[in-house]
């Protein structure tokens, strides 16, 4: 019953979200422009690989360019701000209003976050496709299977980003000072998703950690798919794609369960003004 109600409200929630995104388009553009970290990294690594390919995967300057442009694209398409929102609303008690509504707060959050994606895509895709065409054409894979897998991996990347943020956001029910929660999430993300440096270049132990955590599926995996899975060839690549996609969506399912449990437990502790 509750599920049906939420599903019925979802298209309307999405429409409201899109209208909001369009209304605040200037802010959205500025926020997107502040995502400069991949470009900062790109400048460094192009210079590092200027004299020849580098690292265990022999990345050339062109590879690095394509890698970081794709990282920027994936990051902008899949990013979410639900963690700030939850933090603020739990701390200030606005969450109480959300709890009164007939739609589950997490469903409403997901609609709000998802609704900004079309506008983001509209703004990001033309520029990034042009840049990729100009500077990274030869590094992008032409294998239709890998391109298809890339498209399939994006919703998973978005869901993982969103759910892991919600999971951290639920901690705000327990911890008074919310300052550290975001930093905890972001630090792990930056390091373990391949956002700061490609995972293959990380020092041994960090790399091992990053390969176990779900963060790599938020960025590194989709990017790598479009780069034609460097290091793998032919049927080995195709087999790896399938197993990675399975793992990615298994993580989505696992996080969904974890979020449901933690949300329920956290809500009992919620003691904001008026609750």
């Amino acid at each position: 019953m509750e599920i049906r109600r939420n599903l019925r409200a979802y298209p309307t929630l999405l429409r409201i979200g899109i209208a909001e995104a369009v209304a605040y388009r200037a802010e959205l553009i500025v926020w997107m422009l502040t995502t400069t970290l991949p470009l900062v990294s790109m400048v460094l690594w192009r210079a590092v690989a200027a004299e020849g390919p580098i690292g265990p995967e022999r990345f050339s300057a062109g590879d690095f360019t394509a890698y970081f442009l794709l990282a920027l694209l994936v990051r902008l398409l899949t990013s979410s701000w639900v963690l700030w929102e939850m933090n603020r609303e739990i701390r200030t008690g606005i969450m109480s209003q959300r709890l009164l509504r007939p739609v589950h707060p997490l469903v409403a959050y997901s609609a709000e976050n998802l609704a900004a994606t079309p506008l983001r895509a509209l703004l990001v895709l033309p520029v990034s496709l042009l840049l990729l065409y100009l500077y990274g054409r030869s590094e992008i894979t032409k294998d239709p299977l890998l391109v298809g897998a890339f498209v399939l991996s994006l919703p998973g990347a978005w869901a993982l980003t969103f759910l892991s943020m919600v999971l951290c956001g639920c901690l705000a029910f327990y911890i008074e000072s919310s300052l550290g929660i975001f930093h905890l999430w972001y630090t792990t993300y930056v390091l373990c998703s391949g956002y700061l440096v490609p995972l293959s270049l990380l020092p041994g132990p960090v790399r091992a950690l990053a390969e176990v955590l779900p963060f790599r599926y938020m960025l590194d995996f989709p990017v790598r798919l479009l780069l034609g899975l460097p290091g793998l060839q032919g049927s080995a690549a195709h087999a790896a794609v399938l197993s990675h996609l399975v793992v990615e969506y298994a993580y989505v399912a696992g996080l969904l369960i974890a979020v449901a449990l933690l949300w329920r437990a956290g809500l009992r502790r919620y003691a904001a003004f008026g609750a």
Partner: peptide, 28 residues
């Protein structure tokens, strides 16, 4: 104190790419 510690983590994270870059170049 919390801000200070956080900032130390951030600064070390900022210097990490440089360190990795020089290591990778040395290896090459």
């Amino acid at each position: 104190i919390g801000h200070g510690l956080m900032q130390l983590v951030w600064t070390s994270l900022g210097v990490l790419p440089l360190w990795i870059a020089y290591q990778a170049r040395a290896a090459a």
